[in-house]
Design a binder for these strands. Sequence first.
DNA 1: CTCAGTGTTCAGTG
DNA 2: TCACTGAACACTGA
Length: 289
Amino acid sequence: MPELPEVERARRLIEGVAAGHRIKRVTCARDTIVFDRVSPNRVRHVLAERTVVAVHRHGKHLWLELDQRPWPCFHLGMTGEVFARGGTPPQLNSTPPVQTKAWPPRFTKIHLVIDTGAELAMTNKRRLGRIRLRDDPARELPISRLGFDPLLDLPSPQRFVDALHSRSTTIKALLLDQTFAAGVGNWIADEVLYQARIDPRRRANALSVAEAKRLRTKLKRIIETAVLVDADKSLFPRDWLFHRRWGRKRGTTIRGKPIEFLTIGGRTTAWVPAVQRQRASVTSAETDS
DNA sequence: CTCAGTGTTCAGTG
DNA sequence: TCACTGAACACTGA
């Protein structure tokens, strides 16, 4: 499920269901991996009878602001999802998920019953997600180590360009680095590089100012667009690389150009050499689009 | 049976 | 310190 837009969707879902309400019942799975240095039982007691004041997000991390500390923090890992049932359905722009699931769903790690009768379930299939307790999540690890959230505080063009020019790693690896931009994952990084027409193997400090600014604009627009449709993939613009990148299939094309696959920063990178060409010299008219 | 995968961290190396 | 690689984590689905 989760890169920034999917986590933002989860945040809105939880907020719509629980903000301003009291948690009446909590069930936690027995799981010593997802519950990170805290027992499921302790999480249960910390949440029970608390009022949810707000739901926050930074990058791919989520946390609940309660009327009493500590607060629970969530990272969905690669396969985490949040489901809701009952109560007043939150206003999401996308079509609501089909309600054919068992309840609570398979792989549920935390199940909450709210005083309105609504319920929330957080699942984690592959157990790479984490649930933690913190007194002040934004100021403590691991959230305190995150870089800027592109939706909440994207740096100015000037500061963004400076940040890129201070790093010698490849631009793909830098985009994936959560201490640089929090919330960017593998498909967003590839989408941004494709739309900005930049070779993923280029060094960050070797990008021209025009390229760096283009990258920032695309990063902003891709994330805003995905968030606007509540991360509903079927509503992503048709011309996004997103729709064609999966499966690592040879022979896939986009607008007639072949998609190639590489491993960079340990991750599969989908890119279109004919578009993201590595140009030795940058010709004059570099315009944004 | 094998392998890739929307994520992160850590050990080892240069 | 920086940066890269590979492995580990754990499990599903193609």
